[in-house]
Design a protein around this nucleic acid. Structure first.
Lengths: 159, 159
DNA sequence: GATAATTATTCAAGTTTCTGAATAAATCGG
DNA sequence: CCGATTTATTCAGAAACTTGAATAATTATC
């Protein structure tokens, strides 16, 4: 099943990558290579580059983020066009959105792996995202802002 | 993407097969080969054999039936153990099931391609399946009975 | 803007998958 | 049971995929 002797097949490795980047804070592809190695999976950086691209992983600030992938659901790419502003208030992040899109935004946030969110609640044009603590909320807020600011492009260039 | 010069790749061909067997009444793999040829897709019988197996297509009486495949949902294989009896009444087929399983049975029927059913309604232990006309109902009834009687095995032997 | 760091791509194996032809196995009709 | 039909499997060649090394391109840092 595997094309080389790396031990696991491509699908397994990609699943592992998704798990690793949502658990650890991995900032470069070398970090990912190292993290994989710790799990006993040895691959080249080129392979990680391709994997991240295929998985649609996003790099926000200094960290890779696994984004929702299910077909039929909105992906992270809709956030910049839906979100008007993001304000952290204690452990809650208040997100104002274009009217009617709050549900979609909350749905995306719910599905982003690695985002420390306890839960979301969406109205018509507002989303509350509750984090476990103030620091996490700040982190989440920054991350969302980051996503909206510039880098809507995926980390990879999926063919 | 295709391993030979048949023109389309495996996935496209298998989708086409599903469509063909739900539209036309195909009784043998040669029929399928011929039907594919009419659509401009030329393959050997061996390939059709493998495709049918992979698709989980069932042969009921003298006709192939595409069965639901979605992971997480019940497949046609549950019908024999859930269905107690099947009675056509005009254009409605009344199906008595084991208590609590009517919903699952209706769900499966809804998803079988090629079955001429307008709609289903499930109670606790009864399903109504409404066909466009009496003949279609008889056909549906016979098909369900067939499935329950003996051949629960798929047309293919999916490796 | 130059340099360093990071990421993407090209290239060339090696491996797997896909397929048809041939053939074996199973099923059907009598 | 026997022959005929239908279906499954074996085998081998070809196409496609996967991958690492090397390298190019991009991006960040100063």
């Amino acid at each position: 099943m595997d094309a080389t002797r790396s031990g696991v097949d491509k699908g397994t490795r990609q699943d592992l990558i998704l798990r690793l980047i949502s658990e650890k804070e991995l900032g470069t592809q070398q970090d990912v290579v190292a993290a994989l190695a710790e799990e006993g999976v040895e691959v080249a950086q080129a392979t990680v580059s391709r994997d991240l691209a295929e998985l649609g992983v996003l790099k926000v600030g200094n960290r890779y983020l696994a984004l929702p992938h299910e077909p039929g659901s909105a992906g992270i790419e809709v956030l910049p066009s839906f979100i008007l502003d993001v304000v952290p208030a204690q452990n809650t992040v208040v997100i104002h959105t274009r009217d009617g899109t709050a549900g979609a935004v909350a749905s995306v946030l719910d599905r982003v792996r690695g985002l420390r969110i306890v839960g979301t609640l969406a109205g018509q044009d507002t989303v509350f995202a509750v984090a476990p603590d103030n620091a996490a909320a700040a982190e989440v807020s920054a991350m969302i802002s980051d996503v909206c600011r510039a880098r809507t492009r995926p980390a990879g260039n999926a063919d």
